[in-house]
Amino acid sequence: MNIIAEISRWAIPLLLLLIPLLAYLRKVPVYESFVAGAEDGFKTGVRILPFLIGMLVSIRVFIDSGALDLLARLLAPIFNYFGLDPNLTAIIPLAILRPLSGSGALGVATQLINQYGPDSLIGRLASTLQGSTDTTFFVLTVYFGSVGIRKYRYALKVGLLADLVGLIASIWIVHRVF
C-alpha cells in the first residue's frame, strides 16, 4: 500500500522533470513547445465554462432548497424493501449526489464521516461510495460540451448503470469485509 502511496506522491514531480528533460535531449524547443501546448488550456477552459455553470446552478438549487433530502426520504422505503439495515438510509443523499456533483458529494460524504464516525458502517460506506465512481453527469456534460456534442445517445444510460452497480457493490462489500 505504501508503494502505491509513494507512486502517487512522486508521479507529478517526476513527470515534470522527465518529460522536459528527455524532450530537450531529443532536440525539442522545450519552452516554446510547452507554451504552444498550454495555449489550448485557456480555450478549453472558456469553452467548458457555460456547461460548468449550467450544471452547478441546477445542482446547487436542488441541494440547498431541501429537494435532495426530500427525494432521499421518498427513496428510503426502497432500501427497507430490500431488507437492508434501516440505518443505511443515511447514505441515500450521497448515493443520489454522487453522479451529479463531485464537490457536492464530497461535502455530504465528509459530513457523514464526521457525524457517524469514520470507522462506523455509514462512515466506511460513505468513504467507499465516494471513491467508487466519478461524477457521470459532470463528466458527460463537460466533456461532450467541450467538443460540441449535443446528442449523447446511450452514454448517460451506461454511466448511470455503472453508478448503480457501484452503489450496490459498495453496500455489499462493506457489509462483507467489516
Partner: peptide, 27 residues
C-alpha cells in the same frame, strides 16, 4: 462555476503544455 473553470485553465495549460512536449519528443 467561473472559479472552477479558471482553476481548471491553470492546471489544464500546465498539463497540455507538458503533453505537447511529450508528443513532440515522440513519447
Amino acid at each position: 462555476g467561473v472559479e472552477v473553470a479558471i482553476e481548471l485553465i491553470g492546471v489544464m495549460s500546465l498539463w497540455l503544455g507538458l503533453m505537447r512536449l511529450a508528443e513532440e519528443a515522440g513519447f
